[in-house]
Every structure is written in structure tokens, then in C-alpha cells.
Design a binder for these strands. Structure first.
Lengths: 287, 287
DNA sequence: GAGGGTCCATCAGTGTTGCTTATATCAGGT
DNA sequence: ACCTGATATAAGCAACACTGATGGACCCTC
């Protein structure tokens, strides 16, 4: 169960081809073949069916483990190396599209103002990438978001130990097309909208809504990207409803159940330095 | 970052000695020395101080990662191998001391009654070992417990993906010595007890209480074991208070905040078979 | 302060591993 | 049946990771 072999196995399974994986990894096809054979011998069972290449039952199980495992390995390495890194003058902040709302933008501005020498690179990525990037050391700080009950933590993919601080909670609104019969309301209940058509988008996953408010929530259009602007255009064109934080645009406030758009700051254990300072600036001021 | 090296590193750090670790692992001292050197070269920084042997800052960080990482590696292997295992006639159930309460004992009895051929081995272990044993395949099913708000999941150490089902929630009582002035009450509020002396025991960690009910909860006696019988004796002798599930003995019901003793069933993804059957038997009957 | 003991680092030697290149084998399409 | 695009196997070689022996640092003792 050498991580080296695991990495190769993942590559083969993804590419559905030994030769393609070999090229991608910079090996010969023969090496890949031997590596897979070694894994299979070690575990004592076949992991891949050949021609076409696809994972067996056991291989599927291993694939589920391999990703997180390799991620944690990278996280461990990044964490160790960070202890030796000099306090840098530049750092990277990874943020999900809806995470950097006006409040946090303002705090970020203030934090940067206090450290004029610090160069900040902001990288907007998909929500589930934020934690992984922070864990792997590709970003120094991360901001993710999601929909939860007030003061409940977000559900994040497991990426190893890291500090999580809730930094913002905001009212949710139901985004509706302007001519929608409910658009004039002053408040809406989620239960009244289970039968409406909803946008299926990572920004507001229907699965999460079903968790929180029961079954229903038929998918209208299935939207894969995490671009807020596009989503709002889709809503306006009547493709379906969605929930957005109030600051992301007009909509009818969601009054029940009590749900909020929560933003969390993620970072590995930080030595004192610019990163820690910026993290403090992004955190809510102690009341 | 070969797991092999990681394992050696952990052994050395634990033994605080290269030679002792070498003996324990079945290597020569020279091999261990080279392995550590390889790790340090790879990461580019010293992980251990020598004479006496103790982890550096970076080494400490790596140690925190190494344990979970190796555990997950074992979990992955166990999970893959399980796909090939024939349905066994014997299985191991790991349970924390307070997890197998009367309700669950009864369900276990019923489950066993339905599968007379099945030999069940019950292993009572420390609470934080249960998840690890299930993940590593040393136990087929696990029962852990803890104190939470009703229907909130437990906080478990990360041991990789596994199924978690809440199987029992029970009222909590404050265990008091019989002659305690509050012993006659019909209900107690946790807030009224922050200034009392509490037993510090893994069965009811004071840290958790502070999380749930604010600061306070001074430690009286610090008890390391997880033996319920002993704890009750300590309480009776006036060493301090503690919370127990109602079924674990007499006490004054805790009325606020709303907290419960929750038991969760842990298992890896189970193929249909005796283990899955027993898991179903332990789960609460669908209402 | 010299000597012995303990412990880790280093070196040389050796068996094993894990790659590359070359070739065999297999499944499917024509 | 043959060709094609694919994976498996064989042989060779370089790098690696052990063992055993030796060297050097520290500690304890006398």
C-alpha cells in the first residue's frame, strides 16, 4: 500500500487506461502494469478489470480511500514544511464564490491595510476545493461557505485537522424571477416551496435542502459551475429558484426554517506572522 | 513520506530511542538511523533532536499527522479485503463501557437470537479506540457513546469513512453522593453546578461540559480509567460529581440544558451478511 | 580525568526493488 | 484470418535499503 502505487492506481482508474496513465505520470506502460500488479498481489485480489479498464468492487472501495489518503499525505507534508517557512510577504487566500461577501471583503481590506507590505493573492475556487487546497498547503487561508442552521458548523469534506472559525452568518433569500407570483412577498417558508422547480447548483445543493427541510425540491436545470452571476441570470430567466445570501442580490427573505448562509475561515495551525494576523482580521471582532 | 518510514518515525518518537525502536520493529539500529535520515532529507528539516531523542517542532507536527494517516491506511486495506471475505460465522463487536445499555443489550440479544449460528465476540474498550478498531477491521461493528444535544451526532476522531447510526438516546442524570444536599431534588440544571467539584473522567469529560455549558467545572479527582463501577464508587465517596446515562445508576435528572447520552453504531460499508443483519438488529426499530 | 558503556552516525558491501527496453499475448474490428 | 491498439511478461541494469562493522559523541564511574 505504498502511496506511490496508490497514486498510480488512481491515475489508471481515472484515465481508464494503463498507457494513458503511464504517459501522464511520466512512466512507461510497463512500469504502470507492474505497479498495479504489485498492488493486486499485495492485497491478494484484482482491483481492475481489463479491456475495458474499470475498477472491480475491491478497486472501487480502494478508490474511495485513496483520494483522501493522498490528500492527507500532502497535508502532512505541507504542515511540517510550514514550521520551517519564514514568515512570507505573500500569501494565498482561497475562497469559494459566495464566501467573500461584503462584510468579509471589508475585513480583508482592513487586514491588508494593517500590513501594507503583505501581498495577498486571492483565488476563487469551487467550494469543495477550498479545504483541500488549505490542507495541501496550496493556500494559506481558506474561506468556504454553506447553508446551515444558525451557529451550526458546516459539513466539510475530511481534509485532516485544521482550524475552522465561523466568520460570518447572513440571512438567506429566495432568488426568484422578477415576475414570479411570490416575488412580492415579504417572507417565504421553505416548506411552501418544496414543489417549486429549483436550480440544481453547487451553490445551493438540493440534497442539502432535502436534509434540512424534507423531501421534494425537484430539479429544474442542472447547473454545474459555481458562478453566481450566471446563476442569477438563470433564475431571472425562470429556470428555477435558488437560495442565496442576502448580500448576493435581491430576493425574498427565507423566514422558516431558520437557516443562514455561513462562512468559515479555514487554516492550518499558523505560526505567528502575517497569515495569523490576516486570519485575525477576517474573524469577527470580539463583541 | 513512505508509510514505512512514518511508522519507524512514530516508533522512534514513542520509544525515545533509535535502538529500542529498531529492536521493536525487527530492524538493526543502523536501518532505523538511515530511515530517519531519509525522512529528514526528504522533508529538508530535522525531525528529532538526539540525546535525548525528542521530536523537534516539525517532528511534533508530523507525529500528529502520522497516527491518523497510518490508521487510515490500515482502514483502507481492511475495507478492500472485506470485499473478498466470505460472510463469517463470527464477528467482533467493540463497545465503549457505557455504550451497551439495557436497550442495546436487549436488541443485541434479539439479533443474536435470530442468528443462532453466529458467534459474537464482545470487546469493551476505551471510547476513542472503538472507531479506530472498526476502521482497522479489528472489529466488525462498534458502539460508541457520548454526551450531545438531542439528535446531534457525536464528535468522533477521524478514522476514515464509515457509517454512523444513532441507535439510542437516553436521559442524563447527575450522579451525586447519597448525602449530598442536592440529592433529593427532582431535577438539576447544569448551570447551577458549574461551581461544584466534578470528577475528571473520560466517561464525562469536563472539556465537553464546558463546550456545552460554559466555563467552570473544576476538576476534583482526575480519573483515567473508563470503569463505570469505579466511577460510581468515587462519586459516592464524595470525590466529585459526574453525568451518567439514567440507566447506569441512580441520580438526579438533568433538566437543562437539554442533553442526552447518545450511542452510535459504527461500521464500515457492510456487504449483506450476518454483520449487516446484526447492525440492523441494533438499530432502532423503524417507528 | 581516564576508561568503559551507551547510543547514534556513517561506511562498505550485498541482496532486492523498480525502473526501462524489448517482446509476447490478448481482444476486437475489418 | 489479420491488423490494431491495448496489457502482460522477460531480461537487464541502476538505485535503493537493508546488514554488519566502525567511528564519534556523551555520560557515568572511579
Amino acid at each position: 500500500m505504498d502511496p506511490h502505487l496508490l497514486r498510480t492506481f488512481v491515475a489508471v482508474a481515472e484515465a481508464r487506461s494503463f498507457s494513458a496513465a503511464a504517459e501522464r505520470l511520466g512512466y512507461t506502460q510497463s512500469a504502470v502494469s507492474q505497479q498495479i500488479a504489485a498492488l493486486e498481489t499485495d492485497l491478494g485480489l484484482p482491483l481492475l478489470r481489463r479491456r475495458p479498464v474499470e475498477p472491480t468492487e475491491a478497486g472501487t472501495r480502494l478508490l474511495e480511500h485513496a483520494g483522501p489518503l493522498l490528500l492527507r499525505l500532502r497535508a502532512a507534508r505541507a504542515d511540517v514544511l510550514r514550521t520551517a517557512a519564514l514568515p512570507a510577504h505573500r500569501l494565498t487566500l482561497a475562497a469559494a464564490p459566495l464566501a467573500l461577501n461584503p462584510v468579509l471583503s471589508a475585513r480583508l481590506a482592513r487586514g491588508r491595510g494593517e500590513q501594507p507590505r503583505l501581498r495577498v493573492r486571492l483565488r476563487t475556487t469551487d467550494r469543495d476545493q477550498v479545504a483541500a487546497q488549505v490542507a495541501a498547503g496550496e493556500a494559506d487561508l481558506g474561506l468556504t461557505d454553506g447553508i446551515t442552521a444558525p451557529s451550526d458548523p458546516l459539513r466539510l469534506p475530511d481534509s485532516g485537522p485544521m482550524t475552522r472559525i465561523g466568520v460570518s452568518e447572513e440571512e438567506l433569500v429566495v432568488a426568484l424571477p422578477p415576475d414570479h407570483p411570490l416575488a412580492g412577498r415579504t417572507g417565504l417558508r421553505l416548506a411552501d416551496l418544496v414543489d417549486a422547480r429549483w436550480l440544481a447548483t453547487p451553490l445551493c445543493p438540493l440534497e442539502r435542502l432535502r436534509d434540512l427541510a424534507g423531501d421534494g425540491f425537484r430539479a429544474g436545470l442542472d447547473h454545474q459551475g459555481e458562478d453566481v452571476h450566471t446563476v442569477r441570470n438563470l433564475v431571472a430567466a425562470g429556470h428555477g429558484l435558488t437560495l442565496l445570501p442576502a448580500s448576493a442580490g435581491p430576493g425574498v427573505p427565507l423566514v422558516a426554517p431558520r437557516l443562514v448562509h455561513r462562512v468559515e475561515l479555514l487554516h492550518p495551525s499558523l505560526p505567528p506572522g502575517p497569515a495569523a494576523h490576516l486570519a485575525a482580521a477576517l474573524s469577527p471582532p470580539p463583541s
